[in-house]
Design a binder for these strands. Structure first.
Length: 979
RNA sequence: GCCCCGGUGGUGGAAUUGGUAGACACGCAGGACUUAAAAUCCUGUUCGCCGCAACGCGAGUACGGGUUCAAUUCCCGUCUGGGGCACCA
């Protein structure tokens, strides 16, 4: 009997399906384990071998936990709203729902091939009304809530209104505009519009105007993390700042809890750091400086200049101020002489896109003619404007301390501003030194005080003088939550006279209507704005009145911020998720996905969870207890030198014809011509020959295959020496050597991220077809640690396949068939088994799947050496292996005569008694170098060991009669003789 | 520029707490079986030196130092690869 993996895998996949083997019940009596993959965006390119890496890891862990008696929730779904489908719709006129569903079907076929244990009855698709009904519902929760800073949690807007009616807003500072202040009586007298405008400034989901990243080409606004180097992440279109009405999530109110929550969950160091940086909490002070303008003595009729600084201790080192060019105070303080220059500079800054402003390395700025006054020594400090200060961060104004800040130092040097040294020899006159360890000098009452101590002294003094306060700042901004796009969740909002009216829950879902065209609506609005009938809608709570619907849609991260909850109770039509059920499944125990979602998805989803928790809808406030980031699989891209020639051309160099061009490969040694030919271009790696030395070659046969599969390379062939000599050499006078040419041409290999466009992908289906799903699964794990990025190389897969065949031969022989028996196992066999149990159980538990695979190999190698065919040994091995290679294990499990699926077999229990040894072959070092091994009983005392070792012939030889200085004996490990 | 993580044979990688560096696998070389091939099995494979062989010597985990009886592991410096942030005050 041969290991016929195709038949075996097909049979058992069908049997599992027929018996609903992966159906997960909400069975509250069993201990639970929730294992989640980041659900994919179903792109048209399908899966390549890099995608399933995380899925396989989580699948193994799920199956392992199931064997250990847990009720394991391991679902899969699709993040189905998104730009590419809409882009495709614009280009091909196909409805995004249609192309998305096609892509999903394709994904599903690929996933099924690999034998995952997903409970597909729990599948979610974010684009389906049954799902986005609840995305809209959660949006309404956010809309109808505010963050109560006193209780540090989200509470209902209704309770806030009640508070306003009784006491005004004295107890609740307005997060949208801190200057808003009113009494209960004033509140009562506000119009509905005024009241609603104020409430909007409190809501967790709110509408506002703001500078957003506007991408003309996409006709949409992009989130910060969707803009890369000033261009859109998708498509690389230019992005500029534009003021637009946008929905936002008030995530900044959660900054502190998002930060402190990191301490309660297991995210990698790198991930925690990324989120911490993104939140960007800093401690410092806001300081008010009085302003003196020319001709006026120090007056109070100007508002003070308020700066934010993290280094109040350096206040005596302030040599200039810089305010953002957008700062409101500029107009008020600018002097007559400087007015023109300042206006010119502001015009200059405005003319520059955000991208240019950020990329600028040149120092620029303009003096306003006004001075601030240092409150401690009355020094007059010139106030400048410069583009390097951003209006949106802190107060939009900084105090320049050139001796302590590199950027300020460059600015001072550039404009010849005198630099005050307050840190003595820590400042060398050449470079700023941002130290906190110096003792202050030139600092008035702070002289002689270490900087770290001075910080608090200064702040206390400022507070006492009433001109400053302690201040915590965050880098993070509120998250833009609307897109001028079609393929997303519609907002359940109707506008009337500038007031946003939320739809009643009963009206959800607000379905996405059909449109004729996916192009943007008027004035930067989304495609929905074109549907006049749909846009016009009754105003909720105002019978008889008609308003207009919100035409923005929600961004991609809306649906993905809460999907882990929907899997728990996916068909519930009356709630987003039943509370009893979410109490049971609770947090995701293991979340696996790529690092690219570090700050986007993971932060938003953590915020939504906290809001739902605050409002009492769920019982936990962190969604993911443990996060594992799978590493990227890189692919080898193969580059060949290609000449594109005219069809039927006799002349290799003749390429001007715009007709059909045929690619001809020339040797790599072929000189790059002045005309830019031949062109170095990628060739599809999967169809290229790798020879035994690991070099990549293109053969005639490869050319045929590539030519057939890729339209671009139709007619591909290899240039001959004669062709090159006849047709290239005379025209271009190149040196061409015969030895470069052969019937196979070597290619250049570069490691890069795997992607279809780079032609370096491998389709998992092809490998499954050739070696089977079990081999594929184990090979992906064997490649290396899940979290590490690593190059893909198909060569090694044979080794894993051989392992499975070797395992098979412990049970069956080709001619004799079944060879396993019921004999009692020997001590040696039990030792092999139990060592494997311990190693594999530990490794699986700590996600070290690559070492677990090698432990399986060791175990099977040893059992083969022992010629062990005993059921008592083999059966536990089959169960151990089942999470990794479920199909072959199911076959062997039944082959051994078991009924029921191996999926629910009891996990083998490690018993130490089989692995204990009575003695050990100790490595014996002399002065740290291993010289010999001596077998010594494990229970021997230090004295006995020393006696045995020193008596050893070899040890004596090395000691050559020298004195023993020290005798190191680490029980069970090693011995070191120091002489 | 700042922050974080890494660098181990020809290749992927192992060494979980400072205790025999290179497990396991690929590749390669040689051999067995076979008419032959595939499949399978066996032997060798960090480098250098001596060699019939050795459980023989020396070097060796990017490089240079240090701590220790003992360092891939801890500390300092340099080089280098990857990721994150970037006029963030």
């Amino acid at each position: 009997m041969e290991y016929n993996f195709r038949q075996i895998e097909q049979n058992w996949q069908a049997a599992w399906k027929k018996n609903n083997a992966y159906k997960v019940a909400n069975n509250f009596s069993k201990p639970k384990c929730y294992v989640l993959d980041m659900f994919p965006y179903p792109s048209g390119a399908g899966l390549h071998v890099g995608h399933p890496l995380g899925y396989i890891a989580s699948d193994i862990y799920s199956r392992f936990k199931r064997l250990k008696g847990f009720n394991v929730l391991h679902p899969m779904g699709y993040d189905a709203f998104g730009l590419p489908a809409e882009q495709y719709a614009i280009e091909h006129g196909i409805h995004p729902a249609v192309s998305t569903n096609n892509n999903i079907d394709n994904f599903r076929r690929q996933l099924d091939n690999i034998g995952f244990c997903y409970d597909w009855d729990r599948e979610v698709r974010t684009c389906e009304p049954g799902y986005y009904k609840w995305t809209q519902w959660i949006f309404l929760q956010l809309f109808n809530s505010y963050y109560n800073r006193a209780t540090q949690k989200a509470e209902s807007i209704a309770s806030l209104i009640k508070n306003f009616e009784e006491k005004g807003n004295a107890a609740h500072e307005c997060p949208g505009d801190a200057s808003v202040s009113f009494t209960a009586a004033e509140w009562e007298n506000f119009s509905e519009k005024e009241q609603q405008d104020i409430l909007m400034q409190y809501r967790l989901a709110y509408c506002g105007y703001g500078e957003v990243n506007w991408c003309e080409a996409l006709g949409t606004v992009l989130a910060n993390d969707e803009v890369v180097n000033g261009v859109s992440e998708r498509g690389g279109h230019p992005v500029v700042k534009k003021k637009l009405r946008q929905w936002y999530l008030r995530i900044t109110e959660y900054a502190d809890r998002l930060l402190s929550g990191l301490q309660t969950i297991e995210f990698s160091e790198a991930m925690q750091e990324m989120q911490t940086n993104w939140i960007g909490k800093s401690y410092g002070a806001e300081i008010d400086f009085k302003i003196e303008t020319p001709g006026e003595k120090l007056t109070t009729h100007h508002s003070p200049l308020t700066v934010y600084t993290t280094r109040p201790d350096t206040i005596f080192g302030v040599d200039f101020m810089v305010v953002a060019p957008e700062h409101a105070l500029i107009e008020e303080i600018v002097s007559a002489e400087q007015k023109e220059a300042v206006e010119a500079y502001i015009t200059y800054v405005k003319s520059r896109s955000d991208r240019e402003r950020q990329a600028e390395k040149k120092i620029s700025g303009c003096f306003t003619g006004a001075y601030a006054v240092n409150p401690f020594n009355e020094r007059r400090i010139p106030i400048w404007i410069s583009e390097y200060v951003l209006a949106g961060y802190g107060t939009g104004a900084i105090m320049g301390v050139p001796c302590g800040d590199e950027r300020d130092h460059k600015f001072a040097k550039h404009f010849n501003i005198t630099i005050t040294n307050i840190i003595g020899e820590f400042y060398n006159g050449e470079d700023a030194n941002p130290t906190k360890d110096a003792v202050l000098s030139n600092s008035g009452f702070l002289d002689g005080i270490p900087m770290r101590d001075a910080m608090n002294i200064v702040i206390d003094k400022l507070v006492e003088m009433g001109i400053g306060k302690r201040k915590v700042n965050y880098k993070m901004r509120d998250a833009a939550f609307s897109r001028q796009r079609y393929w997303g969740e519609p907002f359940p909002i109707v506008w009337k006279d500038g007031i946003a009216y939320p739809l009643d829950e009963k009206e959800l879902p607000l379905r996405l209507p059909e449109v004729d065209s996916y192009s943007p609506g008027p004035e930067g609005e989304g495609p929905l704005a074109n549907l006049t009938d749909w846009v016009s809608a009754p105003v909720p709570g105002k019978p008889g009145e008609t308003g207009i619907r919100e035409t923005n849609t929600m961004p991609g991260y809306a649906g993905s911020s809460w999907y882990f909850l929907r899997y728990m109770d996916p068909q519930n039509e009356t709630e987003f998720c039943n509370r009893q059920i979410s109490d049971y499944w609770n947090q995701v125990d293991l979340y696996i996905g790529g690092t690219e979602h570090a700050v986007g998805h993971l932060l938003y989803s953590r915020m939504w969870t906290k809001v739902l928790y605050d409002l009492g809808h769920i019982g936990f406030d962190e969604p993911y207890r443990k996060l594992v980031n799978q590493g990227m699989i890189t692919g080898k891209s193969a580059f060949g030198k290609i000449l594109w020639v005219r069809e039927g051309a006799e002349n290799l160099y003749e390429t001007k014809d715009t007709g059909e061009l045929i690619p001809v490969i020339v040797p790599l040694q072929f000189p790059q011509l002045a005309t830019g030919l031949p062109i170095l271009d990628r060739l599809p790696v999967e169809l290229i020959t790798i020879d035994s030395s690991g070099k990549y070659f293109l053969t005639k046969n490869d050319c045929t295959k590539i030519s057939e599969k890729y339209l671009k390379f139709k007619g591909l062939r290899i240039a001959s020496y004669e062709e090159a000599m006849n047709y290239v050499q005379p025209q271009l006078n190149l040196e061409i050597k015969r030895e470069w040419f052969s019937d196979k041409i070597e290619l250049d290999i570069v490691d890069e991220k795997m992607s279809k466009s780079k032609l370096n992908t491998f389709n998992p289906n092809d490998l499954v077809e050739k070696f089977g799903a079990d081999t594929f699964r184990m090979y992906e794990m064997f490649l290396g640690p899940v979290e590490q990025s690593k190059p893909w190389d198909t060569k090694g897969i044979e080794g894993v396949h051989r392992f499975l065949k070797k395992l098979w031969r412990l049970f069956f022989e080709e001619e004799k068939g079944k060879i396993w028996n019921e004999e009692a196992p020997t001590a040696a066999e039990l030792k092999v088994l139990h060592r494997a149990i311990k190693k594999i159980e530990d490794d699986t538990e700590r996600f070290s799947f690559n070492t677990a695979v090698s432990a399986f190999m060791i175990c099977v190698n040893e059992l083969a050496d022992l010629k062990c065919h005993k059921r008592a040994i083999l059966e536990p091995v089959v169960v151990l292996l089942a999470p990794y290679a479920p199909h072959i294990c199911e076959e062997l499990w039944h082959g051994l005569g078991n009924n029921g699926f191996v999926l629910d077999a009891p996990y083998p229990v490690y018993d130490e008694k089989h692995t204990v040894e009575s003695s050990k072959e100790y490595p014996v070092s002399i002065n740290g170098k291993v010289r010999t091994n001596i077998n010594i009983a494990l229970d021997a005392t230090q004295e006995q060991v020393q006696e045995i070792v020193l008596a050893n012939e070899l040890v004596q030889k090395w000691m050559e009669g020298k004195e023993l200085k020290k005798f190191i004996f680490v029980k069970g490990k090693m011995i070191n003789v120091v002489i």
